[in-house]
Structure formats: structure tokens, C-alpha cells
């Protein structure tokens, strides 16, 4: 084997990993904000993304809606789904054991997967949109991946500004620190939870916009992206968005380089094994503090 540092394929892989990391970072954002604020893990998060992908696909392919509009609709649909998920399913059991909230969304996972199978069949569908690749030296970087990466970064910065600058964003951060005092500020916690759920859903919808450009859509696609997204969030420290951001890139490089040296499954195996080991070294997440 060539010395990797002089091998253009190696660098291409590293860059692919970096770009994939951007997508993972975006996927982890919504889950993290939900967990950080409401203290619930949506096991069905990736299934919401799947429904967003289907929405975009059908609007674009079957109804001829321009892609940007279809994507906007996809984001809105998933945001509404997120709000509905919270209102009808999480809210009634918000005061029971936390693990029930995790499990109930697992039920939703099966429901949505079954629904997609029933409604859209197990057929693999592809949007068939390609923007070609960019050539840099000996490397080829697919434009869609670069675009996905840039959108992810913009979304991360946008979310950060929203949480930091706006009243609503500040309230979202505040409620995760002290829920019970919120009514005294004139804030209804129930409404903030609903808004946060819609926001988390909207971020899942944004994830769908990127994934729909990169991958085939099928009812089980959630099982591919779900676990990795949870791992990214946990390794970054559940609810810690910056930690999740860093973890996303670590994971993505593991997967990309694993795929470079062996098969892609090995990348995942190593990434997950690394995750388990990390949990024992830093159970509070890579950036978490002990308290």
C-alpha cells in the first residue's frame, strides 16, 4: 500500500468523511435540542426524516413541484409531525418514568415504518438529481455532498444565533435549566415544548432535504441513520450541541476511513465500538462536565 499521505484517494476519503460529518452534525442537532430541552429521546427521529424525504420525493417527482418548494414543504411537514408527536404522544406521559418516553417513540418508529411500507411500498426511490462533481487536483468531490456540508454549517450557525439572540431561543435554553419558574416569566412551558418539538422536527426535515439528494429512499432507511445519530448525540453528551457537532465529525471520519481500508460496515463497526469505549472513558460525553 502507498504511504497514505501521498495517496489522493486517502485525502478524498478524508474529505468525504468531513462532508458526511457535516450531515451527521445536522442530523444530531434536532435530536439534541429535543433532548436538551424536553429530556426525551425520539427513537423515531430518523423515521421522521424518512417521511420528510418521501414528502420531498413525491412533491418533486410526481407533482412537479420545484425542488426548493418541495424541500420547504418537507421541512414544514416534519416540523408539524414533530409537534404532533410531542402533543399527542409524549405530553401525556411526560411525568412518568423517562424510559417510557423513549420506548413510546420506539412504538412510533414501527408505526411510521409500517405506514411507509404500506403507503409507499418497499421500493427504493431516487430523486435523480445530480449536480456533478468538483475536481480538485486528483480528487473528485460530489457537489451535493459539498452542498449538504455547507447547509449543515449554515444550519448550525443559524440555530446557535436563534438560541442566543432571540427571546424564544433564550426561553428554550432557560426552560432546560428551570422549568417550573417559567410561568413567572410569562412563558407557558407546554408551548415552549411544542415549539421546541416543531423546531426539532424542522431540523429533521432539513436533514431530509440533504439525505434525499444523497441516498435512495425506502421505508427502512431510518434504521440506517437512526442508530448513528443517537451515538453522535450521546458521545457529544446528550443535549450538548457543540459536543454533538464534534462527535459527528469523529464518527464520520471513522466510517469513511474504515470504508477506505476495508468495507463500509467495518467503518461502522469501528465507529460504534469506539463509541462504546468512549462511553466508559467519558460517560458524560466528550465535552460534558461531571455535575
Amino acid at each position: 500500500m502507498d504511504f497514505p499521505l501521498t495517496d489522493p484517494f486517502f485525502w478524498e476519503t478524508v474529505i468525504q468523511g468531513l462532508l458526511f460529518g457535516g450531515v451527521l452534525a445536522l442530523l444530531s442537532l434536532g435530536l439534541n435540542i429535543i433532548f436538551g430541552v424536553i429530556d426525551v429521546v425520539w427513537i423515531c427521529y430518523a423515521e421522521l426524516i424518512m417521511l420528510g424525504m418521501y414528502t420531498i420525493y413525491f412533491l418533486y417527482s410526481d407533482y412537479g413541484v420545484p425542488l426548493p418548494l418541495a424541500m420547504l414543504a418537507g421541512i414544514l411537514v416534519v416540523a408539524l409531525l414533530g409537534a404532533a408527536l410531542h402533543y399527542f404522544i409524549i405530553r401525556p406521559i411526560l411525568h412518568t418514568e423517562p424510559i417510557n418516553q423513549l420506548l413510546v417513540t420506539g412504538g412510533v418508529l414501527f408505526f411510521l415504518q409500517g405506514f411507509a411500507t404500506l403507503a409507499f411500498s418497499v421500493e427504493f426511490r431516487n430523486l435523480g438529481v445530480s449536480f456533478g462533481s468538483i475536481e480538485a487536483g486528483d480528487m473528485y468531490i460530489p457537489t451535493t455532498r459539498l452542498l449538504a456540508f455547507i447547509v449543515s454549517l449554515v444550519a448550525v450557525v443559524g440555530l446557535w444565533l436563534f438560541l442566543k439572540r432571540t427571546y424564544l431561543g433564550t426561553a428554550i435554553r432557560a426552560i432546560s435549566q428551570d422549568r417550573d419558574v417559567m410561568p413567572l416569566m410569562g412563558v407557558s412551558p407546554g408551548k415552549i415544548y411544542l415549539v421546541t418539538s416543531a423546531l426539532g422536527g424542522g431540523l429533521a426535515g432539513l436533514g431530509a432535504c440533504l439525505l434525499v439528494l444523497l441516498y435512495d429512499i425506502h421505508p427502512a432507511i431510518g434504521l440506517t441513520f437512526g442508530p448513528i445519530t443517537f451515538m453522535v448525540c450521546v458521545m457529544g453528551g446528550l443535549g450538548n450541541m457543540i459536543g454533538g457537532f464534534i462527535a459527528a465529525f469523529i464518527f464520520a471520519e471513522f466510517i469513511a476511513l474504515g470504508g477506505f481500508y476495508a468495507e463500509i460496515e467495518w467503518g461502522y463497526v469501528i465507529a460504534f465500538a469506539f463509541f462504546i469505549v468512549m462511553m466508559f472513558i467519558r460517560p458524560q460525553g466528550i465535552l460534558g462536565s461531571k455535575s
Partner: peptide, 17 residues
């Protein structure tokens, strides 16, 4: 009952929500 991980100014901002 301040929000411990918000800044002073952000706490004041919540008061004027």
C-alpha cells in the same frame, strides 16, 4: 431561581419576555 447557565443579561431578558 435564576437561570444559572444564562448570563445576567439573558436572565434580565427572560424577565422581559
Amino acid at each position: 431561581r435564576l437561570f444559572p447557565r444564562l448570563t445576567v443579561e439573558e436572565n434580565l431578558k427572560m424577565g422581559g419576555f
